[in-house]
Computed example of a mutant assay.
Amino acid sequence: METGNNTRRISSFFLLGFSENPHLQLLIFALFLSMYMVTVFGNLLIIMAIITQSHLHSPMYFFLANLSFVDICFTSTTIPKMLVNIHTQSKTITYVHCISQMCVFLVFGELDNFLLAVMAYDRYVAICHPLYYTVIVNHRLCILLLLLSWDVSILHALLQSLMVLQLTFCGDVKIPHFFCELNQLSQLTCSDNFPSHLIMNLIPVMLGAISLSGILYSYFKIVSSIRSISSVQGKHKAFSTCASHLSIVSLFYSTGIGVYISSAVVQSSHFAARVSVMYTVIIPMLNPFIYSLRNKDVKRALERLLEGKL
């Protein structure tokens, strides 16, 4: 006897979104369209400022430009499809599109994770080994770290996608989310394959733990180095170079961990969708503001860019 429909027989899923109340759809559409436009425009400004301003051609801003690009792609993976569904009053997403969306989302989600770790390493070398900074963090190493981040992220996303393709789904293919999220898809399956489910949940935790451990170690060494600086001005200057990055790291990991813990504790059909907005939409939107307001070089570059001074 078959335990469920095979994945090949499923042509589409249904994304339930945030609410099934039709009166809220216009408000949700306007709110997320506004946040999406701010995210894209703000991160594009950061990228253009770094490219056009020669004094920002350094490893720190090279990684920041890549982080802004990844944030644009990360948000573009989910929000446009949600806006189209609201506009067309359709909750359907095809099976192929759903798996593709999940795969691309995992790629850029892990890239965010790895780039934050790479940027922490960059700040560690700059503060703890300033005399050797240009020798250690050279152009070749920057490209190598970026390519390594891309390779691991893509391999992880492909592995997870292949595992999902092997799953058998039951009759109910309603996803209480605004995009095809890995955990939500795994909950719809009626496949009793414990090793696959264990790997699907364990690998993201391991990758996140590795990156977070690297960040914590880097900041432990940074704090130790700053404490050894005698002058207050010197301590403030050293700390100011990593204040923006530390703010993003705190937001990204605290909300990411909070989402997974709260989703496991609170059983609500739309709860996971609501809390995941923080790290999928809000943080990518806040990144340009945090870096422009707390970084004088970026703020000055953006002012020159908006004034048309290249």
Rank of each mutant, 00 (worst) to 15 (best):
1 M>K: 10
1 M>V: 11
2 E>D: 14
3 T>R: 12
4 G>E: 13
5 N>Q: 15
5 N>T: 15
7 T>N: 03
7 T>V: 15
8 R>T: 08
8 R>A: 08
9 R>M: 07
10 I>S: 05
11 S>Y: 09
14 F>C: 08
14 F>N: 11
15 L>I: 08
15 L>Y: 07
16 L>E: 14
19 S>F: 01
19 S>H: 03
20 E>V: 09
20 E>H: 02
21 N>Q: 06
21 N>S: 09
21 N>I: 02
21 N>L: 03
22 P>M: 03
23 H>Y: 02
23 H>K: 10
23 H>T: 07
23 H>V: 02
23 H>W: 00
25 Q>K: 06
26 L>Y: 09
26 L>N: 06
27 L>K: 09
28 I>F: 07
28 I>Y: 07
28 I>C: 06
29 F>G: 00
29 F>Y: 15
30 A>K: 03
31 L>F: 15
31 L>R: 10
32 F>N: 05
32 F>I: 01
33 L>F: 08
34 S>K: 05
35 M>I: 13
36 Y>L: 08
37 M>I: 12
37 M>V: 11
37 M>G: 00
37 M>Y: 04
38 V>A: 11
39 T>Y: 02
40 V>K: 01
41 F>K: 12
43 N>T: 03
43 N>G: 03
43 N>C: 05
43 N>I: 06
44 L>G: 10
45 L>T: 12
46 I>C: 12
47 I>M: 14
48 M>K: 15
48 M>Q: 13
49 A>W: 08
50 I>T: 13
51 I>G: 04
51 I>W: 15
51 I>C: 12
53 Q>I: 00
53 Q>V: 01
53 Q>E: 07
54 S>G: 02
55 H>L: 06
55 H>D: 11
56 L>Y: 04
56 L>E: 02
57 H>T: 00
58 S>T: 15
58 S>I: 13
60 M>Q: 15
60 M>Y: 03
61 Y>T: 13
61 Y>R: 08
61 Y>D: 09
